[in-house]
């Protein structure tokens, strides 16, 4: 029995098969946000329609939801009514804000007219705010507590349940 071969074999087996096994079923493109637990990056963007500039400081005092989306995104189309409905219900307690990037004002207006609007939608023309928030795809949603700290990030379209679960963290 060749000890060296046996031991190195066992080590290689354990390491390789172990690592692969532990990663089974895990989606390699799901990236955790490093911003959770940190203050929300600042921005100052123009709202579509009204033209007023809204900055992140405006969101303080209440928990906030920042939803990044775009008109060309299928899941965003499905998610939008859910957000609008929740905004109508929770509007007093929670500040909703939508941020659109890589898009045009015309298309956004058409989308909102079609799918509804209950809160400000901001246009990030240069995409810098999306970059600052580490947005990789759309839709992505950030939940902020009343002090402007990010408590959760949700990737993908949300249901009412998802919104409420994450809001609970923001309410604490």
């Amino acid at each position: 029995m060749n000890r060296i071969v046996l031991i190195s074999g066992i080590v290689i087996f354990a390491a390789l098969v172990g690592v692969l096994f532990l990663n089974l079923g895990h989606d390699p493109s799901a990236i955790d946000s490093p911003l959770v637990g940190k203050p929300a990056p600042s921005f100052a963007l123009k709202a579509v329609g009204t033209g007023e500039t809204i900055d992140v400081a405006r969101l303080r005092g209440k928990p906030a939801i920042i939803n990044f989306w775009a008109t060309w995104c299928g899941p965003c189309y499905l998610e939008h009514p859910v957000l609008v409905q929740n905004a109508r219900v929770l509007g007093n307690q929670v500040q909703f804000v939508g941020v659109v990037f890589n898009d045009t004002e015309q298309k956004i207006q058409a989308f909102l007219a079609d799918r509804g609007s209950a809160y400000p939608t901001l246009l990030d023309e240069s995409g810098k705010t999306a970059i600052a928030y580490g947005v990789g795809g759309v839709p992505e949603t950030f939940f902020l507590d009343r002090n402007g700290k990010i408590v959760a990030k949700y990737t993908g379209p949300m249901s009412t349940e998802d919104i409420q679960k994450n809001l609970a963290k923001a309410m604490k």
């Binding site: 990236i31 955790d32 946000s33 490093p34 911003l35 990056p41 970059i131 600052a132 928030y133 580490g134 990789g136």
Partner: peptide, 10 residues
Amino acid sequence: YFERSYGQFV
């Protein structure tokens, strides 16, 4: 800066 937003992944 990019690492702050996206994590070490980037």
